[in-house]
Design a protein around this nucleic acid. Sequence first.
RNA 1: GGUGGGGUGGCCGAGUGGCUAAUGGCAGCAGACUGUAAAUCUGCCGGGUUAACGCCCUACGAAGGUUCGAAUCCUUCCCCCACCA
Length: 381
Amino acid sequence: MTDFQFSIEQEAGAARAAVFATPHGAVETPAFMPVGTLATVKSLDPDDLTRLGARMILANAYHLHLRPGDELIRDLGGLHEFMQWDGPILTDSGGFQVFSLEGLRTVSEEGVEFRSHLDGSLRLFTPERVMQIERNLGADVIMQFDHVIPGQSDAPSAEDAMQRSVRWLERCVAEVGRLDRESANRQALFPIVQGGVHESLRLAAARAIRGVGDWFGFGIGGLSVGESKPDMYRMLEVVDGELPRDRPRYLMGVGFPEDLVEGVRRGVDLFDCVAPTRMGRNGAAFTRDGRLNIKRAEYRADRGPLDAECDCAACRRFSRAYIRHLFTADEILGLRLLSLHNVHFLVRLMRDARSAIRAGTLDAWSRDWLARYHSRTPTPA
RNA sequence: GGUGGGGUGGCCGAGUGGCUAAUGGCAGCAGACUGUAAAUCUGCCGGGUUAACGCCCUACGAAGGUUCGAAUCCUUCCCCCACCA
């Protein structure tokens, strides 16, 4: 299968600038992928995403299985057609929901029984079932079904979840093979490296995964789930040495701007996170000088843009005072403008990082970028 | 003019003798958010002082009274609403 390809253009330490080709187009990396769990990046439409430079987006198997149903989406032509996004799509498996919906599920070797958060019905998610769901959805990249646990979990728990994730990976592979024999397919299955914050477990997970098969790319999961940032960064360094360098690494669920910069430096190519959209809906804007809460009274009469150096649609046109007013008045345009801005901010951040890698200036660029982001507080214009 | 109901902290609105600086909601102020159970959640919210505990002051239309003690009971007055004249 040549639908997927990862072409490295330039390296800078662990970091690299590359192009990740998929059946629905190529993604220049490092890249940030906006999250559209329910087949929509909340408040943004496909044209918005295209304009701000997003190339690849996420959707979620658990949520779309529950509503509107993966078979319905299949019958309507698949996720790309359904949501009118013709760029690359990646679907998460529901492994994160094992963590986030902890009170609504029970884990066994067979799989995870979820109590639907929508209607209370029981749904058994096995690796096989998840592969069928992700096949029905039809994303370009599909994630294995994994077992995510809290970041501070002790080694025995982390090892247990990691080993289970590896066993489930084997079942995912088998099921994908069975489905492929039924009908041709152009999806890439990504495994997920687990292991909590324990170096030996991360190493063991990476090795075990490589033993299961050959992969077009690798997910790094179970991070940004409650562990410290130093622990998260350390795990990236550990994993970097154990994964093949000629394949993309996708750090799942990360993150905040500073985490993207730190991640790129440690060899991560792809990121996704709900932060830009969720925080945008809650009034927080990323700026070059740190986070800004647009609801604060000090911006009441502020004529300036969210971020003076930003060229997004919101910053080119609207004042902080206006956007603050929208939030104060509970107007939906406010949520939309901050979501637009925040996603644009991360997309551009990765574009800038890519340029720095290609220019051979990543170290200086990232050092300066982080210093400024951390040292200042956005002030009224 | 008569009858009935009512006046509570910025607003709405509970509370009918002590546990009440006074439930709730809204507004306001601030914080959190990392593979989305989220346009969500959390904290503060009479004034002064304190790092905090606490202490002091002011407060339930106004004034006076009963009581050890009143937003709650009594008296008078002011105002609002409804209905009847």
